[in-house]
Design a protein around this nucleic acid. Sequence first.
RNA 1: GGCACCUUGGCGGAGUGGUUACGCAGAGGUCUGCAAAACCUUUUACACCGGUUCAAUUCCGGUAGGUGCCUCCA
Length: 465
Amino acid sequence: MKLFNTNTRSIEEITPLHDNTIGFYACGPTVYATPQIGNWVAYIRWDALARTLRQSFDLNWYINITDVGHLVSDADDGEDKLEKGARREGLTAWEVAETYTKEFVDGLDALNISIDRSHLVKATDNIDEQIQLITALEQKGYTYIIKDGVYFDSTKFADYGKMARLDIAGLQAGARVDVGEKKHSTDFALWKFTPKGQRRDMEWDSPWGTGFPGWHIECSAMAMKYLGETLDIHAGGIDHIPVHHTNEIAQSEAATGKPFAKTWVHSNFMLVDGQKISKSLQNGFTLADLAKKGFDALDLRMLVLQSHFQTESNFTWEVLAAARTRRKELQAAADQRYQLHTSATYENIDFADVGRQIQAVLDNNLNTPQALALVSSLVNDIEKHGVSQTQAAEFSELLQLLDDLLGFNVLTSEDITGEQQSIIQEREAARNAKDWATSDKLRDTLQTEGIGLNDTARGTVWYRL
RNA sequence: GGCACCUUGGCGGAGUGGUUACGCAGAGGUCUGCAAAACCUUUUACACCGGUUCAAUUCCGGUAGGUGCCUCCA
């Protein structure tokens, strides 16, 4: 497949570094609060990427759980988000991490995100690896120690900020960066010391003193531990480009002397009502907020996949409702696998070809909107022509492919019950007898059971409301 | 202030140097016991101004407006 590589700003063919395996690392959540829709966007997109990659390669996908060390400011001062969250909620940092890690995993389940749950790796389970990486950097002379921690000297890494195209001089001229004791504004903490006389919920011994790892080091340490020194693909939000990914590249490549990742992909932001998601606007809706309004998490999945990952997208409740309708139409088409017709009157759809087309557009820089356009055209054709019994196998194969690639779980819906089948037949009999009262009453009965009916030329077709 | 991006029909959102994207929503009609579906029609989509070209929404330049990052964030 082809993918836009932020590092080169061009679309490139993905070819595995080793055998046929793609090592894929996506930056994960800091588990200190309930994830909101903006957070989910990236994981939904990376899931689509993963599903597409699996069609061609063996995929080895990891996401980190940042359960320590993410400071409230990239300036390396300020508090650890976990410790702050803990104080806010009267819990320990460990309890906060556990609570929100569970929420994250529950969300992955609801959104049908296909990462192996054992590949969700925690920063706190990999402290030794982080210390080892810092040690390697220290031995190569990239670090220095000041009062509050061990820092990476960004000026010793020649290509610092290359991917982000940072204008270091411009950054340093800006008055907004408070350098503090750091030697340069772009230097960053590798290890932070627990302040004298304090105790943190989360702290570890290290060669430099008791403390905790910086935010950036965990990603490098875990990515390289699980996937090797050079990753095939590293993903994250576009906001990570200038600081987090810039620092990951610097510390990883300084330590190994090898490229950290071959391909970098970045997910653009989703706005809400055209504005950025922020606490003050209270527009950071959670999956629970969606559920309260009667939406399924998969409706959000549809909304997100309707736009391309590199473009800025927009969330409104109206758009979410449109996405829900679109998803239900897809489900209704899939449910016709239980209602195959025997008539030769209707045109056969070339399901295999549709599948190939969908794969092709996804292989072309993960064009999910075009894939969904093809799906919708297919849905229209199915509504029009139905699916013939002679095509049962091809149709099932295509539905399986759609579930594999897009993850809407269309194959999980069950056939209607025998009782419901009988009601449909009774209604047919009533209609033939022109007993409209009975006919309508039976239709209402099914409606209360969540089944809608269409009386098509092929006969009555049911769908789930 | 520095850097980058965007501007497509009521909303969302692809794509293309000359052909209906697609979805949702609205209006009228055909059909139907009704409903739904289907079908037909409909509201002359590509910010504006120039340029290149036989031809630009699609390439180039400018103008206007918007957004993002630089500061927690996907």
